[in-house]
Structures are given as C-alpha cells and as structure tokens.
Write a protein that binds this DNA or RNA. Structure first.
Length: 400
RNA sequence: GAGGCCAUGGUGAAGCGGUUAUCACAGCGCUCUGUGGCAGCGCGGUCACGGGUUCAAUUCCCGUUGGCCUCC
C-alpha cells in the first residue's frame, strides 16, 4: 500500500491545484513546502522545533545517509523516522543529484538556478572527479574521506528501502544547462532507463523495506529543451510511479515554461514534486505551473548565513543597521523567533557566531516559507490566488 | 641619564631601493535554490612626523615624537 493523492480544487486559469497526499505517517496538504534534512536532521533544529513551526514533511538524502552513518545503522535504528524522531511523512532524494552537484557543478558555478548569461564551457573530459557517470550508474567519491562508491538505480533504491522514507525517488542524472543538446538527450534517455530499473527493483523488493508502505516517484529531466522535456514527461509519466519529481538545473523563467510543459503531460491524478526549488517567487511560479510539493535548502542555508525572509524582502541580519534595532524580524510573523527576539539580538548572535543564531534564523525562515505555502493554499481554496500572488510578490520584491 | 629594539588599513603581522604594498582577524556590503554549520566576491592604507641620499624611498641615513627592553 502506498500513498493516496486527492485533488480538492483546481485553479480556473492555470495548472495549479489544491490537494492532499496521504501516507502511513500522515497527511501532506498540498501545495506544501517540504523541509530539507539532508543527513537526517534539519540543520540546527530539533524535530520538535521542525514540527512546531508547521512542517508537514521532511526530505533527507540517500547519498549523505549512505556515507554517514550508513544505511545499516539507519535500518538498525528502525528507519529514518525513528532515528530522527520525526513521526510525519518523509522523502529521500535518490542520490542522483549528487552526480551533478559533485560532478560538473562542483566548483563550476552552476547551481539549480542561474542567469542565462552565465557562461560555462562544458568539458566532459575535465569533469571534476567526485562523480563519474556510465550506463550502469555513477561512481562517487565520498566527500568525507575520498573513498569511491558505486550507485546504480538498484543500489539507490535498496539504500532508500533501508532508510525507509515514505516517498523515495528514482535514480536520475541532472545535467548542466550548458551541456550540449546531444549530451542532455543522452543523459535523459539514460535517466529513463534508470527510472524503469528503479521502479522494477522497488516494486519487487519493497516488501523487504524497513517501511513496506513506501512509494516511489519518477524524475523528469530534459534540461531546458522543450522537445526533451515533453518527451521525458511522456515517457516517465507512462511508467507506473506513485508520483513524479521534476529535476534539472533551471533559469528563472523555466519555472513557468519547462515546468508547465511537463505538468501538461504528466498524469493529473498523481502528485508532482519540484526538486530543489525555491525562493518565494519560484514557489508561486511552481504552484501556478501545477506543482504540488517543493523542497529547498535555501531557507535554512541562508538562515545560517544571516539571511532572513520578511514580507518586505530578504534582509541580511549582519547589516550594521540591525545592531540596535529592537523590533522583531517581521512585524506580521508569529514564529517562535519573532515572538521572543529582536533584530538586535539576532545581530548580536550572528556577530558573536553563537549557534543559537542559526537555530532562531532557521526557525523563522522555515516558518516563513512553510506558512507562505499554506497561505497560498488558502488563497487557492478561496479563489484568490492571483490577488495574493500579486500583492505578496509586489511587496516582497519592491526593493529590487 | 646611557645603550639597544621597534613604528606598515581597526587589531596583529609580512615585505622590500622600482609591487595594483601581502596575509589573518575585525569592519562595511554582496552572493548562496534535490545542503555548503561553508565558501567566495567587492570596498577600506597620505607604510608615525620632518629632513637627506638616489633617476626612484614604505625600504637606506639623520633628527623629532611615541612605545618596549636592558643598564645606572
């Protein structure tokens, strides 16, 4: 038995929809922001804190947990939920993205989002040697000790079954948007073969999983090319997955174009997850393009570096003007941090490099983004999505 | 009182007869999108003051001021 997805309401003009994903560990009301806890911990936060700020689900990473503490330990601990004391729904990413982030993207200023003008020469021969792709899978070097490890689709799924998240992802390859068309096509076709292998292995072995109720999502690739994206959506969409992930490295406008092409083809009655996105504007865009769930490291990563979301845009708490600003971070915010502390206190914590700064900033940013998506959900149910989007984004980006 | 050592961004240090004067930390900003408790980028100096030698002085010489050490 896997997840159940129900659509409660659809946008009249647009692809967006409101729904819910039911798993054996609880319900995710969609659209929803999934909080990232790569190594089985949302950095700087306890699971109780993650829960109390309104989080519905957490996403961990197969590659990182495989390296540390190892899938065997996670399984012995009773699986991811028990290990990290998180009783709600969980996801694991397959580790496929690391072929990209540790490969071409490593030290090459290519990320999930970039401007079209960024120039990078794609040089397969000079790939940084943390990851190497072949037909069977990927050879990674451990970021911890440099040792080599091979992931195949089957191996990735086996590890994910030992970790035991409710929703797991097929093993895929994310390409650089600067890679030549022929390479993107080749990688996409390989990803399709890997998707089928991931799916077959999962269906055959899920009974042995630490969480036998886990579902599997296939991942659509295809870069920024319309024909490849549509082909990928068609092929992956026909496979018997429980839902879909949309992967890739994007330009800003792709959130509307590429994601839209894909969602017009994917079967409507299954949930879609946009991997690794995003910032407020991208979330609005993704929802409008028919995405149900998102995960992103951004809220917690920028929080640890002093970046805080407010309704009036992102601020840097390290700016001098906050040293003696005793008002709360966001006047309209009801999070734990805003309920008890001021700009000045967070400014002090960050300048003094006190770890509580990371905790309070992470609580605030996650509350902000998780609840923003909840507000979007309400606006959709009330038929006010367009109004809400316009007023939020105008205010949020008015200073840029 | 005598002798010695020293003076370089906010701090602590490098440097050398010709450098865009280097580094670390602090400071003022910026960047971060399937994690990166990182990292990177930009901005900030009349090289204590006065004089001399030299084509050229932060660098060598003299003096002044200030600091540290030893001796009486």
């Amino acid at each position: 038995m896997s997840l159940k997805f129900t659509i409660e309401k659809e946008l009249t003009n647009g692809r967006g929809r409101v729904g819910k994903i039911e798993t054996t560990h609880g319900v995710i009301n969609t659209p929803a922001f999934i909080v990232v806890g790569t190594k089985g911990t949302v950095k700087a936060l306890t699971s109780e804190q993650v829960f109390s700020l309104g989080t519905e689900a957490v996403l961990a990473n197969t590659y990182h947990l495989y390296l540390q503490p190892g899938e065997g330990i996670v399984r012995q601990a009773g699986g991811l939920h028990k290990m990290m004391n998180w009783s709600g729904p969980t996801f694991t990413d397959s580790g496929g993205f690391q072929a990209f982030s540790l490969g071409v993207a490593f030290n090459n200023k290519v990320g999930k989002i970039q401007e079209s003008s960024d120039g990078e020469v794609f040089t397969p021969a000079n790939l940084p040697n943390f990851a190497k792709v072949d037909e069977d899978g990927v050879i990674f070097k451990s970021i911890i000790d440099g040792s080599s490890h091979r992931f195949t689709p089957e191996r990735s799924i086996e590890i994910q079954q030992n970790i035991g998240a409710d929703i797991i992802f097929a093993f895929d390859e994310c390409t650089s948007p600067h890679a030549p068309y022929v390479y993107q096509k080749e990688a996409m076709e390989r990803t399709h073969r890997w998707a089928q292998r991931s799916l077959s292995y999962h269906r055959a072995n899920v009974k042995n999983s630490i969480n036998p109720t886990q579902s599997i999502f296939g991942i659509v690739q295809g870069g920024r090319h319309e024909d490849l994206r549509k082909e990928s959506a068609k092929i992956i969409g026909k496979m018997d997955f429980d839902g879909f992930g949309i992967g890739g490295s994007f330009d800003k406008e792709d959130i509307y174009t590429a994601v839209g092409w894909v969602n017009d083809i994917l079967p409507k009655q299954k949930p879609r997850h946009l991997l690794g996105i995003g910032e407020p504007a991208d979330i609005f865009g993704g929802i409008e393009s028919g995405v149900d769930t998102f995960d992103c490291v951004s809220p917690t990563r920028i929080a640890r570096n002093g970046g805080l979301y407010t309704r009036d845009g992102q601020i840097n708490i390290l700016n001098a003007k906050f040293k003696n600003d005793f008002e709360k971070i966001d006047a309209q915010c009801f999070c734990y941090t805003c309920s008890h502390y001021s700009h000045a206190y967070l400014s002090h914590l960050f300048r003094a490099k006190e770890i509580l700064g990371s905790t309070l900033a992470s609580i605030h940013n996650l509350y902000f983004i998780v609840n923003l998506v909840k507000e979007i959900r309400v606006s959709m149910l009330e038929g006010k999505f367009e109004e809400f989007r316009k007023s939020f984004l105008e205010r949020y980006y008015k200073n840029n």
